[in-house]
Design a protein around this nucleic acid. Sequence first.
DNA 1: TTGAAAGCGCTAACAG
DNA 2: CTGTTAGCGCTTTCAA
Lengths: 339, 339
Amino acid sequence: MKRVGIKDVAREAGVSASTVSYVLNRKASQTISAETTARVWETVERLHYVPNLNARSLSSRKTNLIGVVIPQTEPGKEFMFSNPFYGELLSAIEYRARRSGYHLLLSGPEPDQSYINIARNRGVDGIIIVGSYPSKSLDELHELSVPVVLVDTYVKDPVFHTIGIDDRQGGKLATQYLLGRGHRKIAFVSGPITEQGVMLKRFLGYVDALGEAGIPLNEKQLYLGTVDFESALASVQEMEHRGNGETAAFAAADILGMGLIKGLHRMGKAVPEAMSVVGFDDVNLAQMADPSLTTIRQDIAAKGKIAVEIILDVQAGEEEKQEHILPISLVERDSVRML
Amino acid sequence: MKRVGIKDVAREAGVSASTVSYVLNRKASQTISAETTARVWETVERLHYVPNLNARSLSSRKTNLIGVVIPQTEPGKEFMFSNPFYGELLSAIEYRARRSGYHLLLSGPEPDQSYINIARNRGVDGIIIVGSYPSKSLDELHELSVPVVLVDTYVKDPVFHTIGIDDRQGGKLATQYLLGRGHRKIAFVSGPITEQGVMLKRFLGYVDALGEAGIPLNEKQLYLGTVDFESALASVQEMEHRGNGETAAFAAADILGMGLIKGLHRMGKAVPEAMSVVGFDDVNLAQMADPSLTTIRQDIAAKGKIAVEIILDVQAGEEEKQEHILPISLVERDSVRML
DNA sequence: TTGAAAGCGCTAACAG
DNA sequence: CTGTTAGCGCTTTCAA
């Protein structure tokens, strides 16, 4: 029952603790005789020795831990995954990390005590931050000496690594597609637009497309809520209320697109007959919708994978700051009709 | 840039390191003068001291870390959340844990090296295991001295805590509901049925209801795949192929129900007109479906919350093994029609 | 090629 | 009420 430690192994194998440590960590600089090595390994196996990573990190200052911060849709809301995008991203991160012997320390952002502490506290080897946050809290991360990877945010920073997509182009693509199908009154449905967030860019893409088509931006056609299903449901009510007569909507996240479809349906309006909808992200859900959702596809799995790999690169000694812009594309499904 | 440690605080405050430690951890047994306490706190703030939790756990043998193991739908598949149920559960766990100062160590099950190691390695204070696993790998956990909470599995064990629902009753409820609506040929669509898993119980509930209604179980009406959307899509094909003429289906997970709806729709068959569907879990998705899914509701958030609280209880000295069976109910929506 | 010894940063008896 | 003294389990110079 008592935990077996490196000393137990050492005693059993008739060597010193440091020798055991050496064979366990096999460095180029240290050489141990084949015979000793074999004997130590044999003992390790026999005793089912598992190193205590806490102790290890204490002395080696390396934890094999990656901190992941996922945003909450709304402050105080307990549900981290109201947008399935995060679940998919987290999966990808976990998978890649595990394959390299890293574990994930998961945390929602703490409202009061900023998440920098989880990093300092636990001494993670890297941090992946998803979404955009007040840049003040990001500033604190500068004091840290671990790599920070920002996913889906537009903060400009000389040291933080970033991964994203061309959200503006995506927004444009989506809107142009609708325009190309003859739609002129196009609603824009999104979560809050913040300075560094992706929603702003997607919105600008929408504006770009409209502008190029010579259509003036109608402020009344903007529906800004939160990024979750219920919010989109409410947007449908609001549309009805405002009575702009939109024939299409660009939902800046698939989950919002889902909400629109459902909300419209409840009012007896079918998609795409009564209104066309284009989403954004291509989460799994998009194919499940009925009608399935035409959307801007991004490679979520790649995002997660690269985030982890950046951290591994830095651990391996790479110095350079990395900036990745992943490709996007429009996938046509059944939620848009030709006007 | 250099990390400030407890000694720095001690020196600055003109006290010893242990005194600092005492004020930081304020135990009932230890008393420190108000004046010293104030001075130490002031110094802590001024120096932005953040304790190193690694070091702390090393000496206190408490990590404030909870290990969470989430199953993968299919071995080798990288996507942990093909079933949104897990995302919702994880959210709830994280939320509850954070509120008590615990962090989550997330891990998919390692195929080779069993997940017991992540526990031993990192010295987590408790482990939450979701889903059912070969009981051999669970056995290893007995060697651990930390509390283990099993969620959604039917292994009988004298020490592991468990949280679940009455899956059999749920299966029966769902099937009876269909029966009550005049359906006689009812398909059962689920993931793999394993000895300790929830699917078996849900299946037995289905069998119970059929039996009580005097309807013989038709093996041809069983569609067993994996618990994900694609699998349900395939089940629809298979139904068509087998030609049993089912008028309803009990999907043992909402995500499967979603797949059925979509698959049927693709064949030009509408739900509930051509076929009725009842799901299980009442994940968020169930309301998003079109038609929205009639399903067996369980309180996912409560499951996660209780899982964490069991661990907290044990930490607080509670000895007793806990077994929780949470209530379920049927929620009527739009995916079933009266025959 | 190996071992002794000095920590990593913190906690926890035990004295005083 | 506070400081001294040992560690927690491991890594890593430095010598041998």
